[in-house]
Amino acid sequence: MSHTVNHESILGKFPGTNWDQEAGALIVPTVQAKEIATWLRDNDAFLLDYCSNVTGVDYLECEVKEKVTKEDGTVETVTRTEPSRMDVVYHLYSMQKQTGPLVFKQRTNREQPEVESLTPVWRSCELQEREVFDLFGVNFKSHPDQRRILMWDEFEGHPMRKDYTEPFDYEWEPTPHDEILEKHQRGKVIV
């Protein structure tokens, strides 16, 4: 296994950042993202010159049940509402030091998701950020070439969002049973 990156010093240097212990990820405010990314790439302690994976994660608003230990020692289950959000996750490695990964997240809202493009820092983000834009609808500021990549240009919506529903006139394979058969029999299916 490769060596993990020490994240304490990043938190110290950039006070706006958080460490998400459960996910093992560095959460970065979008305004600072490019600055921190450049620093991570060029700082001798990290040299994270290789951005392996870029992707989006869509979190709907959901209710989370948590067990809270009260002061008197009893455990109680509390339900709280987790607000919806959109994460853009970067997995960073260092080729020179052969360390990694450092998970780097830009967090934004779901409705008007907008984050800083890191393509100027790592070229490998170029196509992957386009993909995130295409499938999640995240807007990357200062991305050099932000277009749809996998879906066609006229496509509406962002299919990887959790609340995406496919249009009815989709080209179904009419397998002869199940709900698809019903749709098929309703006669609106293009074969």
Partner: peptide, 9 residues
């Protein structure tokens, strides 16, 4: 340099 930056593997 470009190979590293572009995440070529």
């Amino acid at each position: 340099d470009l190979a590293i930056s572009a995440g070529i593997t």
